[in-house]
Amino acid sequence: MSKEPKPVAIIMIEDDEGHARLIEKNIRRAGVTNEIISFRNGTSAITYLLGADGSGQAAVGRPSLVLLDLNLPDMTGIDILARLKANEHTRRTPVIVLTTTDDVREIQRCYDLGANVYITKPLNYESFANAIRQLGLFLSVMQIPELD
């Protein structure tokens, strides 16, 4: 009785244009064709995700997956993560934290707040590209629960 899932939009919150481009390139190389919506800062991303009123109503009927960088110019990714997971409409939205930090405490903090995956951007490009491609494969088989 499962109906055809709506295509999932990938919301990429990444202030570094280069990183965003590399991530996008490698996701595409993995064969993922979903729409990718990019945001350069936290405020615009929050506005999009939770709506202008911040209620989260905007997210209803709009399955999405969030790629989140922690190091943003106007706020930390942790704030965004916390707000997403605290809102009843967005709390089931998968969040993949993608950042340069491999600080254990920070990773733990993200998982505690409800991050679904935590990926460190390795400096070695091969492994970086590999990680993103794997993530792409993961995304292609992933089911996003749709909200009514």
């Binding site: 570094d16 930090t101 400096l123 490009y125």
Partner: peptide, 17 residues
């Protein structure tokens, strides 16, 4: 070190590209 890393990721990535 953190902020140095971010551009480095780009340099590496785009060098590979």
């Amino acid at each position: 070190s953190h902020d140095l890393r971010a551009p480095l990721v780009n340099i590496m990535g785009f060098t590979s590209e």
